Amino acid sequence: MATIEAADIADITNLLKRERFHRDTAQWDSCRAAFHPNAPLTYINVAWYEGDVKDFLRRSAKVHQGKVNIIHSSFDPVEIRVRGHRATSEAFCQVTSSLTIGDIDYELASHMRLATRLEKSLDSNQWYILSLEAIYVRDRLVSTFPGSSAASQLTMTQEVQAYPKSYRHLAFVMLNRGLKPRPDLPHEDDQESVRRVLDRNRAFLDGAEEEIVKG
């Protein structure tokens, strides 16, 4: 039994890492293959999107810039729990991206926890991602050329300041890109929102009905 679980953990780790790499490099078909074949059963909740994987990938492809920009680095699934054909995973992750504002180049770095639910197909013996939820920890926005006086000219509007500190710089960048993140995302300064995500995952692992997937 221990050998089987170790093999499952290795398969899940590999699956989760491949999915992030394929998403960053715009390999949409490979990214889709990591998720459950039945799209309505899937659930993704990140800063700019909430819904199933089909629409997530469609919108991701639409806004992709044609080159690698967003990178999920330091991604290491460590808290993987397997129970029968169900599993959950947690991982710390740093997401970086570059942007230019007023002729000044910046880099955004957002630190988060990614919580995932997975299901193993009884037919193919293959693991699939059912849900992916981000819990925001902290972020920063820095000039790629330290000491640039123009960088200090950035100001946060009241709209940006209304966002939680855990992902305020991310919100600033997303608003600059024409996106509007939700102000009620799970984040570390709101431990109740964190508990809701983790409690749903525990309930799923304990055998709750499939509708628990969408929380």
Rank of each mutant, 00 (worst) to 15 (best):
M1L: 10
A2T: 15
D11I: 00
K17F: 04
R23M: 09
R32W: 06
A34F: 02
P37Y: 01
I44S: 13
N45P: 00
W48H: 11
Y49G: 00
G51T: 00
G51C: 02
F56W: 06
R59D: 08
S60P: 00
A61V: 08
K62L: 07
Q65N: 11
V78Y: 12
E79S: 09
I80L: 00
I80R: 01
R86V: 07
E90F: 01
A91M: 09
C93M: 09
C93T: 04
T96G: 11
A109C: 12
K120R: 13
K120A: 05
L122F: 07
D123Y: 10
Q126N: 03
I129C: 03
D139K: 09
R140M: 14
L141I: 07
T144C: 12
F145A: 15
G147F: 05
S149K: 13
A151S: 13
Q153G: 10
Q153Y: 05
T157W: 10
E159V: 09
E159P: 02
S166H: 06
L175N: 08
G178D: 05
P186Q: 04
E188T: 15
S193H: 07
R196G: 00
V197F: 13
N201G: 15
N201L: 09
R202I: 09
L205V: 03
A208G: 09
E211Y: 08
